[in-house]
Every structure is written in C-alpha cells, then in structure tokens.
Design a protein around this nucleic acid. Sequence first.
DNA 1: CCACGGATTGGCT
DNA 2: GCCAATCCGTGGA
Length: 210
Amino acid sequence: MIKNLQKHKLPKEFYYRDLLTIAKDLLGKYLVKKDNDILYVGKLVEVEAYDGAIDEAAHSFGGKTPRNAVMFKGGGLLYVYFTYGMHHCANVVAGKEGEGKAILIRGIEPVYNIEKMAFNRYGENTVTKTQMKNITNGPGKICKAFAIDKSHNGTDLSGNSIFISKGEDIPGDQIRISTRIGITRSVDLPWRFFINKNKFVTNAPQNNAK
DNA sequence: CCACGGATTGGCT
DNA sequence: GCCAATCCGTGGA
C-alpha cells in the first residue's frame, strides 16, 4: 500500500500554482503519514485557503515572525501551529517563496488505520459511534488523530514521512464553497472548500452555502 | 439540534 | 495583557 501511495505522491509543482486552485484540487487527495511502522491515510474533504498578501485572517498577514516563518518558505511544506493553548493545526504551504500562502486542513475521512487514529484521539481502544463521527472533522482533531504536532512544522511534503497522494477524483458538482470558520477578520472571503454532504466535514452553518 | 462558556498556552503588541 | 485559523461538555428547546 505504501509503495502505491508513494508512487502517486503529488509533485512539488502542484503546490506552486494558484492558491484557490490548489485548495480545490486538494479535495479527494490522500494525506499520508508514516512514522516508523505506523501508517495513517485519510482523504481530504474540507480545506481553507489563507493568503498573507490580502487576507487579514492569515497568520502571515502582518509579515514574517518566528511562528509563521514556514508559510514564507514556498509551496510543498507542512505548516503546523499551536493554538488555544491545546490544539495543533496543519496547513499545506502554497505559492512561491516569500508569498505567505497556506491551506488549512479542516476535514479528513479516514482511509487506513482508523483504529490508531481513534486511540490517539481518545486514548481507548473501543470508542462510541459519536466519537467515531467526530474523529477527524476539524483541524485540531486531525492533528490529534494523526499525531501531528509542532515537531512536524516545516516537514517537506516531497519526503516520505508526511506527503499527499493522488487519491480520488471529486466531480466539480460535489464541491461546495463557503466563507471560513472561526475567524474574526476577512470573514467574507469565500475561501473554504468542502465535499458536499461528506460526513467528516466540520459542523458549521456555512455547510448550507453554495 | 443549537447556544454558550471554560480550558490552557504561547505569540505578539 | 490580550486573545487566538478549537474542542467538548452542558443545558435547554
């Protein structure tokens, strides 16, 4: 399985294109993480774009700082940040060096090793139906399930520890667009993309948007 | 199903 | 010192 995933790893050029095009194209792709023997695979079903040039909600909006430095290093890296004193969130850096663009991973449908994801999330081997429903439907939950933290900040997605693979094609009519979640500035930008009716999309009023 | 508030740390003004 | 690209439990309709 891992061989096949590696074979279909997205090339560096994928991340050097237009921000919103990348965001939309990420839907249906497989996020793969492999540390030692443990393999995690999940399908991307919800993402949000951030652009430091024009978007006040982007961490990179105010310029480079130690925390957001990875966002400025150019496409194809993983930007992981810590927030609310307890959660990590993972982003795919996009665009050219110095631009400060990234795409937040907000929703994932487990594809392989859901048992280990559940254990990482809840610390138990047996979980309820409700817990299973909430396993990876949010950016903090995804990092917990995949055991992603600040030590993974800056990981090169062209390597073999964390990468994104071809996955499934999502027909255009299954893609929905809305405003983003949980921000207080640039709230009107329609930069959230998700797969219509997918069970692992974050619960949000925006889900009824076009 | 929906609304609300508490948790808890680090980053930046 | 303020507040955040969140999550979860609680309480009510």
